[in-house]
Amino acid sequence: MRHYRLFIPLLYIALACVIIALATICMTTGAIDIPPSQVWAALTGGHVDNRVWSVIVTQSRLPQTVTALMAGAALACGGLLLQTLFANPLADPSILGVSSGAGLGVAAVMLASGGAVGSLAGTLSTVAGAMVGAMAVLALIIALSTVVRSNVMLLVVGLMIGYMASSAVSLFSFMGAAESVKSFSVWGMGDFGGVSLARLPYFVAITAAGLLWALLMMKPMNAMLLGESYCRNLGVNLKKLRVSVLLSTGLLTAVVTAFCGPVSFIGLAVPHMARLLTGTSDHRVLMPVVMLLGAAVALACNLLTTVFGEGNLLPLNVVTPLLGAPVIIYVIVNKRKIAYFN
């Protein structure tokens, strides 16, 4: 632990610099390049040479950048929590079907309301739908985890639940009105740009609450690494911890899924990147790094969606697997060399 003393603070600083740099690029580049000084002026209420710039910065780029930042941190944190809870390095909200569950909830709300998600009430009911769907899947998986002892089998069960949710979603789309089906399938591609400035405070407040909740669990999550009996012997209330992990992960996944769509691979890959970077499984070091790294990766993915120009934005879920899947393949290929596998 002693050799971390210098490395970890430096890592925090480096990650913060990367996030600031990526956020600056997100704010300044796009269909129209805006000089950083003008972006700054627009944000701080100073004099901006071009009125359109001011609107672009505050109405479009600011919400998108902040959303990417928070969503990345939230998804990565949810992945870390589930990987520790299930003692399985391949656990992740999207793999375990939690995102599909949230998607089912969103589909139910969207298609029932005829695609009217523009209003605040529509947004809140979408979030509530996602939350109910995500929680239902997580509760089902936790319940099954007492019967299915093997973690690999449990992942397969999660995949199956995900397929069932997707199939229900397909059924809804088949029966739904064309208008609402279109808005739902656009939602399904993932997008950090879907949160308007008016709704941004809600999104930030909910994700921040979820992240804070996760940070408060750093200590018992460490005990969890030793396995359930050791964890209990150290005085941890296991039942309470499980429920707490379930609720916080459900909250983080649901709110991101409701606002940005089912974003894949960030939750799975970022905890691995953070462990490789820090060389530890200690959550007191790992969890803040996972959040910062998740934010940075999400910003990078957001930037990559614009590689073909602002006119042809790539769907977010085209980019995230390209970044995430190689990390997982690297980790599996080098399993024997990597310390946190046994």
Binding site: M218, L225, L234, G235, N342
Partner: peptide
Amino acid sequence: TERGAEGGLTVYETVSLGRYPYTDFLG
């Protein structure tokens, strides 16, 4: 005999977990 996912912890970090019942909520 139970094994968890402690492989990524160092010896010092693992033994420190023994202080779990004595440390504050941030450990």
